[in-house]
Design a protein around this nucleic acid. Sequence first.
DNA 1: AAACAAACCTGTGCGC
DNA 2: TGCGCACAGGTTTGTT
Length: 256
Amino acid sequence: MRTVRRTSSAALVAGLDGVTVRGVERRGKYLVLRFDEGARAMIHLRMSGQVLIAGRTDPRPAHTHVVMGLSDDAERGRGEEVRFVDPRTFGEVVAYREADAAVLVPELDRLGWDPLLEPEAMTPRRWRALLAGRRRQLKALLLDQHPVAGIGNIYSDEILHRARLRPGRRSDDLSAQQARRLLGTIGEVLAEAVAHGGSSLRDAQYVDVDGRQGGYQAFHRVVDKEGHWCGTCDRARIRRSVAAGRSSYWCPWCQR
DNA sequence: AAACAAACCTGTGCGC
DNA sequence: TGCGCACAGGTTTGTT
């Protein structure tokens, strides 16, 4: 099936059969499961993927592509399984050996600064150099996982609104103050979004492992609000345009 | 170097 | 009610 495309399904099953979970990590938008003996799994949800934990006897949702049975566990209860569900099949599950990571999941090595994992690693000075060293639209730069990892279309717009910068603004055209403000808002918006369980939009695709929707969409200032009066300045209506090939929402008054 | 389009898919919401 | 079309959270690849 398309969800398992870098290896055979048989290799995925063989690679994960009987292993013990040692850790679960997030790196940018990638999930990495660490098992004993160097076994690993990478999961990416892309547009419509979900990772759910449910009882083995609960009906499996449509588009369940990968199922990992769990041993009985006193804390969570008995008879549970991890399911990867993904209608659009853009998402991916890869099982690999730690030693083969560079070959099978090379993108993990190319991920940029992760604002939540290592907030202090990006100093204002480094950040200014990063911005000045390219001549890119801020929106495109935030969406690019190589300089900064973990920001998608929703949070790039929310970050730029809070930083009061337009999506099409050039990265090498910011004052020191604007650059500092942008750096600060990246961490703030991401941390708040995580605290509220992320953002679930109209189609409610984004849910946690228990199937619960996020709550941060209630705090969105611009995303999905084309034509609404801006709740921050109350002086302009939110506009929608295409930047970096993606739908972008912004306030013409707040953002310059 | 950076911008853009297309490709990978299915589901949903809208206008008619 | 139903049909066709536009569009959707991401990433890679190839072309201007």
